[in-house]
Design a protein around this nucleic acid. Structure first.
Length: 479
RNA sequence: GGCGCCAUCGUCUAAGGGUUAGGACGGAGCCCUCUCAAGGCUCUAAUAGGGGUUCGAAUCCCCUUGGCGCUACCA
């Protein structure tokens, strides 16, 4: 039985890299008909906040994928304590009484990396017990095997054969001096206790895996299988950080920008993974069917954003495609809350009629506000009168067109075909080109040159509104 | 510094000894057209460098360079 977990620590918002890790775990679980477990790694009480936990849930909920089991490490502290002392009892760990901030400088710089404090590692059982009983603070450290020239080895499902000499692994902590478990310890104990079959996580944990394998050994259990994922990085090559790169790193930014959850999931999947054919737009079901670790890349993927384009153009394109593919009713339902949040009151039936006119013109849900605004307002915002002037024409032509249109529209049948034939006939009668006829009308009713197709727009706007707006345009031209 | 990992168009990627190095996004152009889109077509642009192995390397090996990660009583 495949069991995978996503284990964020609540020290910030949901990062897009974390979201992608969640998605790959989820895809693998669904693909293998296994279980997806959400585990909150909150062993560092100092840094965890409720706000952060809420924001992670918000992000995960928006992704709309779900999970099967939920755990929180702060509920399981006793388990980590018990397991740590079991490890100690088996001789795989020792008490280190070195004071907290003792000589941290000596650790790096020089030739060999810092491995352990030999004095503490060699402390006799008696002295260790005595000092602990006397209340002297200590951290419980893993005793990495050094007597043999052993190497820790494993086969990563993405990166292949991995190997590291024990002499390059330091004696890491299991329990802090306050008794709380470290990430390494709690994570492994939980992975063992929850019977996690595959650990799928960021490549930043690749080197940590050697330590984890030693912990699993000390715990007396088989290691899970590992699959590390390439990291998401910024165009400057640095890893994505809120401080340096701003809101682009947060999942909620994309929700707020008007992304459809699935299209964003689709986008994230394409970063560091490929179905190996030319498919890019994929449904959730397709993603599940085709996902595998063989398709995962080994090099980091750049999220392509800049000051001018804060959102990766590929994400935008995928979203516009997803919007285009949506049934009109569904798109209208997605649009309604956006329109309402902007303060417009619009009847659902009307929005349903507007939707097909803008469907292929919006890249995000939020674009409805800039593309269809003139449908929502009672009064058009002021616009430059010069806009009314058609190509290769003048203000006089605009006036003639609008006056003529005004009369024609009073009696025209307000349907696409009706308006089409009436307005084209008027153009011919006036001796102007169709475009010269349509443009002044478009600007009069929309307030700008760029807008959805004219006849449908007039139809949805309705005769009354159209006549009022044309009158206003005529007045502007006469002034 | 030590250890580990990585390296194909600007970006995401395909090609795992033999291809004019393919696709997508972006950009440019053309077509379509009532504007804008959408759609169609064309163009743009890559195997980091150097050595090997081989009849033949983007592909295998080594070195260099560059990038990333770990090196906490953070996760």
């Amino acid at each position: 039985m495949v069991r995978v977990r996503f284990a964020p620590s609540p020290t910030g918002y949901l990062h897009i890299g974390s979201a992608r890790t969640f998605i790959f775990n989820w895809l693998f679980a669904r693909r293998q008909k296994g279980a997806m477990i959400l585990r909150i790694d909150d062993t560092d009480v100092e840094r965890n906040t409720q706000a952060s936990l809420d924001s992670i849930f918000n992000g995960l909920n928006w992704l709309d994928l779900g999970w099967d089991e939920f755990y929180q490490q702060s509920d399981r502290l006793e388990l980590y304590r018990v397991k740590a002392w079991e490890i100690f009892a088996r001789g795989y760990a020792y008490r280190d009484f070195t004071p907290m901030n003792a000589a941290p400088e000596e650790r790096s710089s020089e030739a060999g990396a810092w491995l352990c404090n030999p004095e503490m590692r060699a402390l006799s059982a008696e002295e260790s017990e005595r000092r602990a009983a006397a209340g002297e603070p200590f951290v419980l450290r893993f005793r990495v095997p050094r007597e043999t020239e052993r190497r820790v080895e494993f086969e990563d499902l993405v990166y292949g054969a991995q190997s590291k000499a024990c002499d390059d692994i330091e004696d890491f902590a299991l329990l802090r001096s306050n008794g709380a478990p470290t990430y390494h310890h709690a994570s492994c104990v939980d992975d063992a206790d929850l019977r996690i079959s595959h650990v799928v996580r960021g490549q930043d944990h690749l080197s940590n895996t050697f330590k984890h394998i030693l912990i699993f050994e000390a715990l007396g259990v088989d290691s899970p299988l590992f699959a590390h994922l390439p990291l998401l990085i910024a165009p400057d090559g640095a890893k994505l950080s809120k401080r340096k790169h701003g809101p682009v790193v947060s999942v909620m930014t994309y929700k707020d920008a008007g992304f459809l959850p699935h299209s964003y999931v689709n986008f994230l999947c394409l970063l560091g993974w490929s179905p190996k054919d030319d498919r890019e737009k994929m449904t959730r079901q397709e993603l599940i069917e085709v996902f595998s670790f063989e398709g995962v890349n080994r090099s980091n993927a750049v999220v392509n954003f800049s000051e001018e384009d804060p959102i990766d153009p590929k994400a935008l394109w995928l979203n516009s495609q997803a919007i285009y593919a949506l049934p009109v009713e569904e798109l209208a339902a997605h649009l309604a809350p956006v329109v309402a949040a902007a303060g417009f009151e619009i009847a659902p039936e009307k929005l349903l009629k507007i939707t097909p006119l803008i469907q292929e013109r919006i890249k995000t849900l939020n674009d409805v506000l800039t593309v269809a605004d003139f449908f929502f307002v009672a009064e058009l915002a002021d616009y430059d009168t010069g806009e009314l002037t058609p190509q290769k024409g003048d203000a006089a032509m605009a006036l003639r067109v609008l006056e003529r249109a005004r009369v024609a529209l009073e009696s025209a049948e307000f349907t696409h075909d009706g308006l089409d034939s009436v307005l084209r006939a008027e153009a011919t009668a006036l001796g102007v080109k169709a475009g010269q006829m349509f443009q002044p009308i478009r600007v009069a009713v929309c307030g700008r040159k760029v807008a959805p197709p004219l006849f449908e727009t007039l139809e949805v706007l309705g005769r009354e509104t159209c006549l009022v707006r044309i009158d206003q345009a005529v007045r502007k031209l006469r002034n």
